[in-house]
């Protein structure tokens, strides 16, 4: 279903673009949407998704990743430019790194909730503390 949605969107954008005849802009838009095709329709920059992800993060992830993903028993998640698919995949299937274990969250959160977490973690890329060399 999601795939159709993306294809429909792409078709729609192409037709709009054709009339406007601004092809460079068009190409950029298609690439941007294509990059998100593996996820769901939640916009990763959507403040609602980010704040939903933040709440889930503080309820479930802060124990290991620290507040704002500042790092704890597991690696820091802030100030890092991780690909959305990579974040989604890691959250879904969990991770073992030496003594530290992250359970898979597949059976705990539906896809939408996991993508909201991705949105929140992506929002931690450019925090003020990142410039301080943390």
């Amino acid at each position: 279903m999601r795939k159709y949605f993306v294809i429909e969107n792409v078709a729609h954008i192409i037709s709009v673009c054709a009339t406007a005849a601004v092809f460079t802009l068009c190409a950029a838009t298609i690439v941007a949407i294509g990059a998100r095709a593996g996820g769901d329709s939640a916009n990763l920059d959507d403040p609602v998704a980010i704040s939903g992800g933040e709440t889930t993060f503080y309820q479930n992830c802060v124990y290991c990743h620290g507040s704002k993903g500042s790092g704890g028993s597991a690696k820091a998640l802030q100030c890092r430019d991780m690909k959305p698919d990579y974040i989604f995949e890691t959250i879904t299937n969990g991770r073992i790194a030496g003594a530290n274990v992250m359970p898979p969250w597949k059976d705990t959160f539906d896809e939408k909730t996991r993508w909201q977490l991705v949105a929140y973690i992506r929002s931690l890329r450019k925090l003020p503390e990142c410039d301080a060399g943390n």
Binding site: H65, G72, S73, N100
Partner: peptide, 11 residues
């Protein structure tokens, strides 16, 4: 080591 505690106290 290996525990939930250090993760939460890190901040």
């Amino acid at each position: 080591l290996g525990s939930h505690a250090p993760g939460f106290m890190a901040s």
